[in-house]
Design a protein around this nucleic acid. Structure first.
Lengths: 337, 337
DNA sequence: CTGTTAGCGCTTTCAA
DNA sequence: TTGAAAGCGCTAACAG
């Protein structure tokens, strides 16, 4: 026995003895229909176990009610929480999500876009790579609904949502200064990453306002997603011997974990000898030991807002673009006590 | 200006001056076609910026090349890693995934299934809830391709993939015994969870083989996904004062973190006073402090295998069902040193 | 090697 | 209030 064939509206129409579009009207709750026939149809539909084939209607209506999500690494806790927000809000709005991991590779991002267009998703939420973005440019010239999440592209007329990175960088650095740090280094993202760049600006601003001369930004250079921890560990291992730093501000919490791990191995005490601040406030930072001072970013909200921006764009492709900046907050914990 | 309309094979056929199915043949790399015309068509397609509309072909071929993934909480590190394995393997095989979170609620699981069928996914990977499973039963009687992941249903004729839970429970408990523990409690999953039940069997078996009388299994009773940590904390807080335990085996790493947190608050030293073992070996367990002894489960592999099982089932709905058991391994770390 | 035709399941005119 | 018919974009069977 093979998988049972699906019941179609045609089957229902035959069974009830009406035309297929009467069935369609009943099923879609349209006004122009007799209550009695409608009831009969609905009943029969249930009896036969009818489940609508969305592809039929998609083909006709040209709306798939699917959005694509292109993300570097869905197992990274930051992304996975943002995604959760996206999925939750999408589900509420009867959209489904199709997620594709890029592993941080541009070629995967490019491929993901064309795959999703082939699937005729109504729009795309993209966490861009940023070392290249011709693919995004192409999307925009075709007027494809797209929202960039997390990292912006300068001077583009596109919907974007990100956190107040400058403020985040500033808060983190200022906090370290207040705690008495004099030599603060920052372990930032890859050079091309605008989120990283803005956090750097915040870092520099805080130093300047507090008249601290020493500044030192080290950019990570990871080859793959999922190696933040290792990068943090490596960089700190190399740098701490040369420079007698007393504060470290990290691009994200995972890097901070690595940094702290490295300090532990060298028997440098956190927070007594060196204080460390992370960024993102992922779930584990409060149970990390020492618990990590970090910049709180509302990841669930970010996901939800991102979805809603995309929905708005889908519904009106010509509405003016908007850039949403979410507020951030300093969370003080033991790593800077 | 509205979003540009998509180019169709009809447009290409007009532009080149051939019939639409010649175009189709060229695009699909079919044999019966002249090389030259094919070239011309491909060229024109590129020039016009043609991107196939998969819905057209899906409607025709009745194969969506989409699989559904129903998961309790995609932001839980265990699930998010398994999902990563799924997505990776799916992508390799030109499948896309549609993920739906159930938040551990049966009604959401039910809804997810019907949503996915409406989307005519070719099959479903389901991480079942298990307090109820009429929904799954229905899927099976309809011969819908489905693979249960992580948790089994007893005595059903269905594809399943899970870890060797009995062995895991045994290894964890045996390890604690070897380390000198005499009073070992187990914090297990909800009562209906078969994975939990099997880990309990392993726990009991190890106790018995080592002639240890004391046994104590506490089942968690969490209301929502994402509260494992808090549950672990609560349970240990309540129990440790009454019972002088010296070993704790937890259903998963998150519970173990909570347990350890609770012990820390009571100034009970891990591992000196109480030794703790987790389960799953999520990413953070090696950087947790103290680093967590746990049962390693190959999550990426689990995801990949799960996908391949489903693919096999999709391609041959009548092949005999299989149950795959993945091996597990004890990872010794500081929490039991 | 290529074109004609039918049809996947649905929605949407338009007419009755 | 209902039905007939067309068509969304694609593939496949068949004929030429």
């Amino acid at each position: 026995m093979k998988q049972k064939k699906y019941v179609t509206i045609k089957d229902i129409s035959k069974a009830v003895g009406v035309s297929i579009n009467t069935v369609s009207r009943a099923l879609n709750d349209k006004p122009d229909i007799n209550e009695k026939t409608k009831e009969k149809i609905l009943e029969k539909a249930k009896e036969l176990g009818y489940i609508k084939n969305s592809f039929g209607s998609i083909l006709k209506t040209q709306r798939s009610k699917i959005i694509g999500v292109i993300i570097p690494d869905s197992s990274n806790p930051f992304f996975s929480e943002v995604f959760k927000g996206i999925e939750e809000e999408a589900r509420k709005n009867d959209y489904q999500t199709m997620i594709i991991n890029t592993e941080g590779k541009y070629s995967f991002e490019e491929k993901a876009i064309s795959t999703l267009i082939e699937r005729r998703v109504d729009g795309i939420l993209l966490f861009p790579m940023q070392n290249k973005y011709e693919d995004i440019e192409k999307l925009l010239t075709k007027k494809y609904p797209v929202v960039l999440v997390g990292r912006g592209v300068e001077n583009w007329n596109v919907d974007e949502i990100y956190n107040n990175e400058i403020k985040g960088g500033f808060l983190a650095t200022e906090h370290l200064i207040k705690k008495g740090c004099k030599k603060i280094i920052m372990i930032s993202a890859e050079k091309f990453n605008t989120a990283g760049k803005n956090r750097e600006l915040g870092y520099l601003k805080a130093l300047e306002e507090n008249k601290i001369e020493y500044k030192n930004i080290v950019n990570i250079n990871k080859l793959h997603e999922g190696l933040y921890f290792e990068e943090g560990e490596n960089i700190v291992q190399k740098i701490v011997d040369k420079e007698k730093v007393d504060g470290i501000f990290c691009y994200n919490d995972l890097i901070a974990y690595g940094a702290i791990e490295s300090l532990k191995k060298k028997n440098i005490n956190v927070p007594n000898d060196v204080k460390v601040v992370g960024y993102d406030d992922i779930r584990f930072s409060k149970i990390f030991s020492p618990s990590l001072t970090t910049i709180f970013v509302n990841k669930i909200k970010m996901g939800k807002e991102a979805f809603n921006m995309l929905k708005r764009r889908i519904e009106n492709i010509d509405s003016t673009t908007m850039q949403i900046t979410l507020d951030v907050e300093l969370i003080e914990r033991k790593s800077t006590e």
